[in-house]
């Protein structure tokens, strides 16, 4: 049984969610091969060979795979697909984009965002914004799965010794042209990988006030997140959103500031180890999941906390 994991990378390194997908592949059991598709991604291919538990790295370096265009990546994965019992990718926006396309072309019902492996054909996944956990069994010959980034312990990106196979197949549908991107630059740890996160909600009142959180974040080495209310109000960019439709996080410490705790927000953070809520409304639902709650005005509490750290 061979498992193909489609890696997410930035041409020079392999991104952390891929290491979680490899861990899920190990839980399934079998020979694990990693596909690195991109343009001028030689460094990422080299980094991929170091990942623990990977036996082979497939390198597809071509203009067609630049920017992970779904139509082209899917064509490539489908061509490789028949050799594998399982095809996995992390549940990132990129994985969510091309994997269902792969599944449909293979005539397979994909299982999205698995949070547990029971057997090689049976998996657990959250439904209804994480308010229920379903155990599902696939009857398809090839299992196409995306893996929840917080559900498995990432494998090490060191110590592996995989061989490299260069692929020459070129899939270019020409259906989509990539124009440009606006990537939000920040020096903080990535939200999905951070061990401490401090998030702000509507209670922050405006974007400038998020600098209050940054002081605490700096001292704790934390990432800064936000609720949908804060994003929709234009306080902060959408890539900071934690929740059912944003990023799913599970840090050691999650500090929710001025966030009421709607179902959709809890879906993105309630697997955090320790949850702290700072809110002046003592009836806010966030207090029902918080390990430590402080009923206070955030504009007093956050600066005080900053000073104490």
């Amino acid at each position: 049984m061979s498992i193909l994991v489609v890696a997410e990378h930035d041409n020079t390194s392999i991104k952390a969610p891929t290491l979680v997908a490899v861990a899920a592949a190990q839980a399934i059991g079998g020979d694990i091969e990693l596909l690195v598709a991109g343009k001028e991604c030689g460094d990422a291919v080299k980094a991929a060979t170091q990942i623990e538990g990977v036996s082979k790295v497939l390198s597809a370096d071509d203009e067609a795979y630049n920017h992970s265009t779904a139509e082209n990546i899917a064509g490539l994965v489908v061509e490789l697909g028949e050799n594998y019992s399982h095809i996995l990718s992390p549940t990132t926006t990129s994985g969510k984009n091309f994997m269902p396309r792969v599944a449909a072309l293979l005539d397979v019902q994909q299982i999205s965002d698995i949070s547990g492996v029971i057997t090689e054909d049976t998996f657990e996944r959250p439904i209804y914004a994480g308010n229920a956990i379903a155990t599902v069994q696939s009857s398809d010959a090839t299992k196409v799965l995306t893996v929840r980034g917080t559900a498995f312990d990432a494998v090490s990106d060191q110590g592996g010794d995989a061989e490299i196979e260069v692929l020459t197949a070129k899939h270019d549908t020409g259906l989509t042209v990539w124009n440009n991107e606006e990537i939000v630059k920040q020096d903080r740890p990535e939200l999905t990988a951070a061990s401490v996160i401090i998030s702000g909600g509507r209670g922050m009142q405006n974007g400038e006030n998020f600098t209050l959180l940054e002081g605490v974040a700096d001292k704790l080495g934390a990432a800064v997140g936000a609720s949908r209310a804060a994003v929709d109000a234009g306080f902060v960019p959408n890539d900071m959103q934690v929740g059912q439709t944003g990023k799913i996080v599970a840090p050691d410490l999650y500090i929710a500031v001025g966030i009421s705790g709607a179902i959709q927000h809890l879906a993105g953070m309630k697997d955090s180890k320790v949850i702290v809520a700072i809110n002046k409304d003592e009836d806010a639902p966030i207090f029902q999941v918080a390990d430590f709650g402080l009923v206070d005005d955030l504009f007093k509490a956050v600066p005080a906390m900053d000073e104490m750290l």
């Binding site: 229920a132 956990i133 379903a134 207090f287 029902q288 390990d291 104490m308």
Partner: peptide, 28 residues
Amino acid sequence: TPRVKTLKVVPPSEREAGIVVETVEELV
């Protein structure tokens, strides 16, 4: 015809109730 069979659906594990602290000092 469905390809994936749902074997069971369970509620997520509950979080234990936390405590309310009085001051920022106590929280830290």
